[in-house]
Write a protein that binds this DNA or RNA. Structure first.
Ligand SMILES: [Mn+2]
Ligand SMILES: [Mn+2]
Ligand SMILES: [Zn+2]
Ligand SMILES: [Zn+2]
Lengths: 133, 133
DNA sequence: ATACAGTGTTAGACGTAGTCTAAAGCCATG
DNA sequence: CATGGCTTTAGACTACGTCTAACACTGTAT
């Protein structure tokens, strides 16, 4: 059992069962933005007997305990993001891949002054094509 | 049959059947961002025999013909937006309501300069609470 | 008038992502 | 051991969207 993950879970009031650590080992470290079923597939490679319900339960628990964020950017799938700091997202329309865009790469102004809206959080969602740079 | 809607449909190469006009009368004029089933409910009040499949077919046709945009901002529902110009969105976390934010109410910079990303379109997605203003 | 073709509508089956349920397993404590 | 509280599990269930295949409508050709 990965001690670093065990420590994170304990530090957030989560009993570190073998299944939860296996899910955490993948989803808390990925650079990706995987869906629940992608997490299930990835975790099953090393922990083949884990059930789908446990993966969903664990992901929802991690969201509740603020180890993950849920993003809803594309049709038919919720994706999970272990990058908790403020950042933006770029969606490659060709592959569906979701890329992080650093908070300071884009500048956004006047969000605080919108009449009638108390903005708790915001992000820029960009869509387009990836290209060589 | 609403002549204004008939004209819009014809102008976009869509045969103005009674069902399509009924859907258009609601969804092309709403200030809301309704889901397909909300559209179905609204249209059925005046056209009770319309089928769910026709509403979905019609909405998808309107999207294809660029009379509507699809937005994916919340869990478990695609919503439709007849406001075609560039604008941002604010989601009231209490009610789930989606409000338009005028393009110029917020300023966004440096989106064009992101390395490796060809941004075709973008918007700011804000979440928070509505309040009196 | 009738036949026919092309388009549009319909009910209901289907696919699929996510949730729920109820039983079984695990583990600490007495 | 026995008990109690979590946790996991398989599979049922729900909800949104799509697909299918039959039926209806409309306009044109005969
Ligand atoms: Mn969730
Ligand atoms: Mn669609
Ligand atoms: Zn991210
Ligand atoms: Zn809008």
């Amino acid at each position: 059992m990965n001690e670093a993950v065990v420590t994170i879970l304990q530090g957030n009031g989560i009993q570190p069962s073998a299944q939860r650590v296996a899910v955490g080992e993948y989803v808390l470290r990925t650079e990706d933005h995987p869906s629940a079923d992608q997490v299930w597939a990835a975790v099953r490679e090393r922990f083949p007997m884990i059930s789908r319900a446990t993966v969903y339960n664990t992901l929802n628990l991690f969201v509740e305990k603020k180890l993950l964020r849920e993003l809803i950017l594309a049709e038919g799938r919720i994706v999970f993001d272990p990058n908790l700091g403020p950042h933006h997202h770029f969606i490659d329309e060709e592959s569906g891949a979701i890329l992080d865009v650093p908070w300071d790469a884009v500048s956004v102004d006047r969000v605080e002054t919108l009449p009638g809206m108390d903005v708790r959080e915001y992000q820029v969602v960009m869509r387009g094509r990836r290209r060589a740079h």
